[in-house]
Design a protein around this nucleic acid. Structure first.
Length: 576
RNA sequence: GCGCCCGUAGCUCAAUUGGAUAGAGCGUUGGCCUCCGGAGCCAAAGGCUGUGGGUUCAACUCCCGCCGGGCGCACCA
């Protein structure tokens, strides 16, 4: 189903081609200011510049010629400013689109064409350590991108590239051998692993022999020593359930969890391959890729093998990329990590291009740090990273306090569910509603506020709509509606109706640069417009045909809210 | 030293990728409960978009220089 914006773009671009002979887009955008109309054509000015013509005259010509093709959709277009063409939708057209959106499984959002295969790499916690706030943004943002791309019909493969082969295992293996611990009986195996790691890593700073021992154990592990391998496997397997619990709470799903260790056998081949192609060379005993022809990277080598023969993060990432291409033939791979890794991915992508993956789209989706109220990266009072599980517990606890204060009479089970959905939604929404490239300040009161651009506000708007249907004894609204039966007489009705039809635009913006905050701001505006309508227009008490028409607006609003929140990984509830 | 990112209302943030008069929330001030959930709604005040140049019909957005803040840069990941 074509969106309103796409429809206008297609028609006006056709007029520009036929009447001016210019092969240029109409560049239709929503009007910056509603007083001008609903959509504006921005494409005339650039054309006038190229053709060296008067922009106003050109705009007059196109506007006049567009009146006929747009007759069923909009009032006759008008020209304003330097050469903008303003388009105001006819209420009758808006009314006719609503039943189509209602009947459409995607609420009017066009399916991606062509659908592509996209590998999405996000979250990536380290084995033997708890997930902490550092993994929050990657997981939440990555999951939202996955949901959105899937919604559009793409084949999305989510792959959790866990850190299960790094230097931490040297200390862990050494420590566990020293202490002869039996992890199977531990109530919190990860806490044990963290304790052992901290103890031996800490001790190594004063005692180099411990560092040497740890390094030796790591070398043995990487050489497939059976005892170390068995111990490593145990540590890894005992870490997974804790990750799983967090993902289940967050609603994040991975199709694959192929960690660093999976690629271990491929690493020598990667280095040999790159050297063979002349892309990598020996330097100071190590093997590096140099980018002498890229000014920004010319003094920044990409190390793929250490002078002691060990492989590095870049080597694994290259092997991973190669495996993904061989296995899934993706058109694109997206990595969701914090912005500090920018240089690494620049180098990785540049190497991949030279390596023969020039047609593969590679995207590094970066984000800033989570800061505490003191504007420093968030930590506990003792300086430890905040554990993700504890953070989610606190979100639910704080939401529960609010539910208790507002709706103490609800059954305990219902209150728990509300607190869970609202608490987790608040954490996610606070993160996703901001431009991901900036750092963001974590604040409980702000994310749990019931007013303003927050998850609880949106969830509340949804609840109010559902309440109307309950009150009217209609659990499910109408599934279809005759286009002629829609009445949009009140300005609040028309305003809401037009905005419902703009859901596709929000999705497109959010997808273009992997920016979920565009979905958030659309949903917030939608909720605000619904509130205005709700105050202004009685639904259940209205006479027919207005009542049925307003019920449909309610139903569509609820549908878009629920779907939009779902794309953010946020649930809705029936009451709160 | 080199490179990347950020600087927008008192505070926290938007701004559809170069479009018309830069928008929200919090906070402040003032209104709205015979009415579908007031966890709500409406309104007012608040800005030289860090700064100085440049490009353009048009700049928060692009280019150059400063000033502030953050991050990264050879054997961690």
């Amino acid at each position: 189903m074509e969106s309103v914006e796409q429809l206008l773009e297609r028609l006006v671009t056709g007029v520009i081609r036929d009447r001016i002979g210019a092969d240029a887009p109409a560049a239709v955008r929503p009007c910056g200011n509603p007083k001008f109309g609903d959509y504006q054509v921005n494409g005339i000015l650039p054309i006038a510049k190229v053709e060296k013509k008067n922009p106003r005259a050109l705009a007059d010509l196109v506007a006049a010629a567009a009146a006929q093709p747009l007759a069923a959709i909009a009032e006759p277009p008008t020209v304003a400013g330097a050469g903008f063409i303003n388009v105001k939708l006819k209420p009758g057209f808006v009314a006719s689109r609503l039943p189509q959106a209602l009947a459409n499984p995607r609420l009017g959002v066009p399916a991606a064409s062509p659908a592509r295969t996209i590998v999405l790499d996000f979250s990536a916690p380290n084995v033997a350590k708890s997930m902490h706030v550092g993994h929050l943004r990657s997981t939440i943002i990555g999951d939202s991108i996955a949901r959105t791309l899937r919604f559009l019909g793409h084949r999305v493969i989510t792959d959790n590239h866990i850190g299960d082969w790094g230097t931490q295992f040297g200390f862990l293996v050494h420590g566990f051998k020293q202490e002869k611990l039996d992890l199977a009986s531990a109530t919190d195996p990860i806490a044990e692993m963290e304790r052992v790691y901290r103890k031996y890593y800490g001790a190594s700073e004063a005692d180099p022999s411990i560092r040497e021992a740890a390094k030796a154990e790591l070398v043995k592990l990487h050489a497939d020593d059976s005892e170390n391998l068995a111990l490593w496997k145990k540590l890894r397997d005992l870490s997974m359930p804790a990750f799983e619990r967090v993902y289940q709470r967050l609603g994040a799903r991975f199709d694959h969890t192929l960690g660093e260790s999976f690629y271990h056998p491929r690493l020598p081949g990667v280095v040999a391959g790159l050297k063979g192609k002349g892309l990598a060379e020996d330097s100071e005993g190590a093997v590096c890729v140099f980018f002498r022809d890229v000014p920004a990277l010319k003094d920044k080598p990409f190390l793929i093998q250490k002078s002691d023969g060990a492989f590095l993060y870049p080597t694994t990432d290259l092997a991973t990329l190669q495996y993904r291409v061989e296995t899934w033939q993706p058109g694109e791979i997206i990595y969701v990590t914090d912005s500090r890794q920018k240089l690494h991915f620049q180098q990785l992508f540049e190497t991949a291009r030279r390596w023969g993956h020039a047609d593969l789209k590679l995207a590094h989706v970066t984000f800033g740090s989570v800061l505490g109220e003191d504007d420093k990266p968030i930590k506990t009072r003792s300086g430890e990273p905040i554990k993700l599980g504890q953070l989610l517990d606190e979100a639910e606890r704080r939401a529960m306090e609010i539910v208790e204060a507002q709706n103490a009479e609800l059954p305990a089970e219902t209150k728990r569910e509300i607190a869970r959905v609202v608490g987790l939604g608040a954490v996610k929404y606070a993160d996703l509603s901001q431009n991901r490239i900036n750092d963001y300040v974590f604040s409980w009161p702000k994310m749990l506020a019931m007013q303003g651009n927050t998850a609880p506000y949106l969830q509340y708007a949804y609840v109010r709509i559902r309440s109307i249907f309950r009150k009217g004894s209609m659990e499910h609204g109408a599934r279809s509606m005759e286009p002629g039966a829609v009445v949009l007489a009140d300005p609040a009705e028309l305003d809401l109706a037009k905005f419902i039809l703009r859901f596709p635009e929000a999705i497109e913006l959010a997808t273009e640069d992997y920016r979920p905050n565009f979905i958030c701001s659309y949903l917030y505006d939608l909720a605000c417009k619904f509130s205005a309508f709700y105050e202004q227009c009685p639904v259940l008490k209205a006479g027919e045909p207005t009542r049925a028409s307003r019920l449909m607006l309610c139903q569509l609003t609820a549908g878009v809210l629920r779907q939009g929140l779902d794309l953010l990984g946020i649930q809705t509830i029936e009451q709160m």
